[in-house]
Nucleic acid binder design. Structure first.
Lengths: 160, 160
DNA sequence: GGATAACATGTTGTGCACAATATAGTTGTT
DNA sequence: AACAACTATATTGTGCACAACATGTTATCC
């Protein structure tokens, strides 16, 4: 038999590494699994999940008559220009939106939907329901989890 | 005033798109926020988060005297060879582990820790606690959320 | 009004994530 | 033995994600 004390602290480390694995890894794995579930639905629109998120922001802004700047989109989605610039460029090349540098402030690039981008909104409107059905998660459970995640997000982002 | 009916269905679509945004987007955003929290801690070990996950699996296997094959690691982390092969190659180049093709079955590549890789475990042992403190999440809350996420994961992965 | 700081976006480089395909080895059937 | 089916890993290509740096712009302080 081994010593009791040394074994315990070893076990503690094992448990911590395992717990940690399961807490943050669960998040990591679920996130990839869910974007995997989106993939076939979004493939019908020829969009990736991050592209879909950008389109959601754009549809929302467009309804208010806004043409958001790149930084606004980044703020909303917590993505930086290194991610957004090439992503927006691809959507622009496909004719879903336009990017235009402001004449007032040359640093600013405003993004606007084209008619084609606006039209895609209808084709995308059934994605959320189809996904929720696909997941087999009840609405109240979904809301609860979303609240927990939002709470966690504010904690994680809170004190920098 | 606009028609009641048309406005309602428009609002429904808006709500769905917004709810969807918030549920799955919350997961997406929290995941990135948390790996961002890991980043400075893991930078001390010169590891990325996926590399850290692989090392966790390796430390766990090593304790049992195992030298897992690439596919076992991938199964555990839900990652495929396109992700793991270059990642493992980088860890091998740094001398943390070895990759060896099995002589019994030449298709199989087994991965084993080096002494250096084994030694890193101690330096990494305080990462989980430091992260939990950093997040400001209580243990019982963490356990609850982990359970919810594991439940969700089994749902999402369940029926393919 | 000229240095300087703060700002908005873009560029470059590294490292995942994953689909599609390739390669090579193994097993089973005839 | 020959061949097909299957398996394990590697390779290639596209698209994020983010850090570090570059470029040009505006504002501010003196």
């Amino acid at each position: 038999m081994k010593e009791r004390k040394a074994l315990d602290s070893e076990e503690d480390i094992n448990n911590l590494l395992a717990l940690d694995n399961q807490l943050c890894f669960a998040l990591y794995a679920v996130n990839r699994a869910i974007t995997g579930r989106y993939r076939p639905l979004l493939a019908e629109l020829d969009l990736t999940y991050p592209q879909y998120l950008v389109m959601l922001v754009m549809w929302e802004a467009d309804r208010k008559g806004d043409s958001p700047r790149v930084s606004s989109i980044g703020e909303r989605l917590r993505l930086d220009s290194g991610t957004l610039t090439p992503l927006l460029r691809r959507l622009e090349q496909r004719g879903l939106l336009t990017r235009q540098r402001s004449s007032e402030d040359e640093r600013v690039v405003t993004v606007a939907l084209t008619d084609e981008g606006r039209a895609m909104r209808e084709k995308a409107s059934d994605v959320p329901l189809r996904l929720l059905c696909d997941l087999g998660v009840g609405p109240e459970q979904a809301v609860q989890l979303r609240e927990d995640l939002r709470d966690l997000l504010s904690r994680v982002e809170g004190d920098r």
